[in-house]
Amino acid sequence: MNVCFTLNNAPTELDVGPGERLVDVLRARGYMGTKYGCGTGECGACVVLLDGEPVNSCLVLAPRVEGKEVITIEGVGSPLQPHILQEEFSKAGAVQCGYCTPGMILSSLALLARNPNPTREDVLRALDGNLCRCTGYVKVVDAILSAAARMRERKES
């Protein structure tokens, strides 16, 4: 069946099977930043933004995105033009194997869009669906708070 939606700000039309998952559809079309982890909505490696909110794409049947807006990590920044969040993750050493990082960044992006000045507690709550098994969370939270501060400064200036 045909599904029309916006993928990383570009109108997109895809032919998908009724039982295909969004994570599989994205990865099959080259959006490999969306990671496949547990497949049961536990780990958050496959998080994408659906109409601006983080969701586990392993639990979204592809036809469900009809008419909606999907943002993957490829739509956030690139190696040449990284997003402030990506820069701060790198600076803080908040990345080790990197498997959870796209999901972490997308969850953070949704948080900062709604709350530009989050507390440490707000960040931890926003990341409650993103598991990391390498670095732990201290540097991740530090990176998000630094990015939030830089984004506020940029907006003010």
């Binding site: 909505g41 998080v47 909110e53 983080p54 586990n56």
Partner: peptide, 9 residues
Amino acid sequence: TATTPLRNL
């Protein structure tokens, strides 16, 4: 209830 991404679904 559950986690942030799950609550959005």
